[in-house]
């Protein structure tokens, strides 16, 4: 061995090979310490992370359901919509992503509509959005993009362009929502697409149709069953 090499590796030459037990012990202690730190930080930050997520959903619901004061999350159970009770949160199951929609109420505790989240592949990645559905008028009354990686300057107009947002002030959901070119909107069920962002706009239309298809019958049944606004519905 040259002098230079022995200079670089002095420890390895002099030191005996440590026993396997020592290696396992060293890594075991490192893992244990790491585990303790991680549990600590998780316990400390988890309530805050949950609160942040809830606040984000709350903000979105209030935006897509104008006049909304309180809301109740509803979940699908055996094909039926039931209220999700807060105590469910303590169960371990609540960690897995449940499909939820939100029933929004105004100050007089009257049901004003449902906030429905949905997603659909856009141009770059899946677009996540939430929209407000007014079951009385059978129209969409608000729309908000929650997650999107659409191209800046083009596809991101789905949440930056005020003109596109006006599509969702009273958008009929029956018959199916159809995309039309800008300035050609004639019927209540048409969405004016964004020039240069056709794929992103059409993804939104698909998202709305898909989510309405999934939830509409459930919502109708929920209203019938709970006898909310029955008299109004049958007029």
């Amino acid at each position: 061995m040259t002098e230079e090499q022995s200079k670089v590796l002095p420890d390895l030459i002099e030191e005996k090979e440590p026993s396997s037990f020592r290696l396992i012990l060293a890594l075991g202690i490192a893992g244990l310490m790491s585990g303790i730190i991680l549990v600590g930080i998780f316990i400390y930050t988890n309530p805050m992370i949950k609160a942040n997520k809830e606040a984000a959903i709350k903000r979105a619901i209030f935006k897509v359901l104008p006049g909304c004061e309180t809301y109740t999350p509803l979940k699908l159970d055996d094909g039926k919509l039931i209220e999700k009770v807060a105590s469910d949160d303590n169960k371990e199951e609540s960690d897995k992503e449940e499909l939820l929609i939100y029933a929004g109420y105004n100050t007089n505790k009257e049901l004003i509509g449902f906030a429905i989240p949905g997603d659909e592949p856009g141009f770059q990645d899946v677009i996540g959005a939430i929209f407000g559905y007014d079951d009385k008028e059978n129209v969409i009354i608000g729309f908000e993009v929650l997650e999107s990686k659409e191209t800046p300057g083009l596809g991101d107009k789905i949440f930056k362009d005020a003109d596109f947002q006006t599509n969702f002030s009273a958008l009929a959901v029956e018959p199916e929502i159809v995309p039309v070119k800008k300035g050609e909107k004639q019927n209540a069920n048409e969405v004016e697409t964004i020039t240069g962002a056709t794929i992103s706009s059409k993804a939104i239309v698909k998202l709305l149709n898909k989510s309405m298809g999934v939830w509409q019958t459930n919502i109708d049944e929920y209203i019938k069953e709970n006898k909310i606004r029955v008299s109004e519905k049958h007029e």
């Binding site: 890594l27 991680l38 930050t45 992370i49 942040n52």
Partner: peptide, 22 residues
């Protein structure tokens, strides 16, 4: 051992950012 140490601190940063600057 280095990776365990580094990964621990990365997870701490990950949780802290999610909690304070979502």
């Amino acid at each position: 051992a280095y990776i365990i140490i580094i990964a621990t601190f990365v997870t701490v940063v990950d949780f802290a950012l999610a909690a304070f600057t979502p």
